[in-house]
């Protein structure tokens, strides 16, 4: 359940930003998470409330931009949607590909007050 330590890192980022801005709390937070980033979205949902309690993120509205995975086949150059790391290229069937999207894991924006 590494999602809780991911939430702890998000809290740390938010607390630093709130302090820098001289604010008190976070009204809303926008996260960008790729579907190949290694995050289980349901585990993140499950752990969020506990992870942010008694922090600046308590009661903050959470927006998650889910970025679907995309890869480029190294054999035939086809760009395709990748749902799992072992998905073959739909064009030529090769497993030899590079991930070009879906590994994102960042805090995009915070609204503080």
């Amino acid at each position: 359940m590494h999602e809780l330590s991911i939430i702890a890192s998000i809290v740390e980022i938010a607390e630093a930003e709130v302090q820098k801005a001289g604010a008190q709390r976070v009204e809303s937070i926008e996260l960008e998470i790729g579907e190949l980033a290694g995050i289980e979205f349901s585990a993140l949902d499950f752990a969020w409330e506990v992870g942010v309690s008694q922090t600046v993120l308590e009661n903050a509205e959470r927006h998650v931009n889910r970025i679907s995975g995309q890869a480029r086949c190294s054999e035939c150059d086809t760009t395709f949607e990748m749902q799992a790391l072992y998905d073959p290229c739909p064009g030529c069937g090769s497993y030899f590909s590079e991930i070009i999207k879906g590994k994102e894991l960042s805090v995009k924006a915070l609204t503080v007050s």
Partner: peptide
């Protein structure tokens, strides 16, 4: 900082510190 709400576009990698 405007009075009330402020939007901070920070684009910070969550695993950045690690």
């Amino acid at each position: 900082q405007a009075p009330g709400k402020t939007v901070l576009q920070i684009e910070q990698d969550i695993l950045g510190k690690n």
